[in-house]
């Protein structure tokens, strides 16, 4: 299982120009293989930018990122991404969305069917295979998004506030389910959020970014036992981490 690294990564929008804006500065991070990591920070700290660069959607202006020692340049299937917005293709049924990635690489009908069956089940959408996305709720569409990325079998999953638009109850449910899926596959996850509680509940490691420009302000190792359960959210240990991180973000 590969690890993902950033080396002195700096990103400046409009570099060299008059309105140059440095959003990320000297980001030096290592995300160990198989771990669940979160990046938190106030809005505008560049956390989404960082994630998009890891996906290869654009290159940093300075420094580099490596996956398993190989420099990241451009997108490829090794780094899958779940977006904040709804990215489910509305013109494909749930099942066809799930098997989109394998189909790109010429998977046979039988292989596609197998993948569709496995991942609709894994993300809790069994029975909805032939539905159009418009027939699903926001939470279910997010499940399609996640299932589709997992079915594509990447090495690293990058998640950009995937549950940001969901209501509190759906969100907690999705968090538990995501942890279950992660636990079964042990793929490296990097999860961007502004929700401190969400970050603590999910992660082994939380990176706190400061704002303008985004710098690594603090790294919190979360030692809460796994599997995580909802009642842990109210334990003293959990709340203590929450207080500490909250104080950091509230400046």
């Amino acid at each position: 299982m590969p690890e993902i690294k950033t080396n002195n990564l700096t990103h400046t929008f409009g570099k060299g120009g008059e309105n140059a804006l440095t959003v990320l500065e000297d980001i030096d991070l290592t995300f160990e293989s198989g771990s669940f990591n979160s990046i938190i920070g106030t809005s505008g700290c560049g956390k989404s930018t960082l994630l998009k660069m890891m996906a290869g959607l654009f290159d940093p202006s300075d420094g580099a990122m490596t996956l398993d020692g190989t420099v990241i340049h451009g997108t490829d299937r090794r780094r899958g991404m779940v977006f904040q917005q709804d990215a489910v293709f509305p013109w494909m049924t749930v099942a066809k969305n799930i098997s989109y990635g394998p189909r790109l690489r010429g998977a046979s009908k039988a292989q596609q069917a197998e993948i569709e069956a496995k991942w609709t089940e894994m993300v809790g959408l069994k029975g909805f295979e032939d539905r159009w996305p418009r027939e699903l709720s926001g939470g279910m569409r997010k499940r399609v998004d996640i299932g589709r990325v997992y079915a594509n079998d990447p090495d690293v999953l990058l998640m950009d506030e995937p549950f940001g638009a969901l209501d509190a109850q759906t969100k907690e449910r999705m968090q538990s389910d995501l942890l279950q899926t992660w636990n079964q596959t042990k793929k490296t996850v990097i999860f961007v959020t502004h929700d401190i509680e969400e970050a603590i509940f999910l992660s082994d490691k939380i990176v706190v970014l400061s704002s303008r420009p985004g710098r690594v302000h603090h790294i919190e190792e979360v030692s809460l036992p796994r599997p995580r359960t909802d009642d842990m959210r109210l334990t003293e240990e959990f709340l203590e981490i929450k207080r500490r991180l909250w104080a950091m973000l509230d400046h």
Binding site: K52, T75, D76, G80, F83, A87, Y100, L104, N152, L158
Partner: peptide
């Protein structure tokens, strides 16, 4: 075409 669809497909290796 919404950019997020393009990005989603690209990050899946399209």
């Amino acid at each position: 075409v919404p950019q997020v669809y393009v990005d989603a497909a690209s990050t899946m290796g399209a």
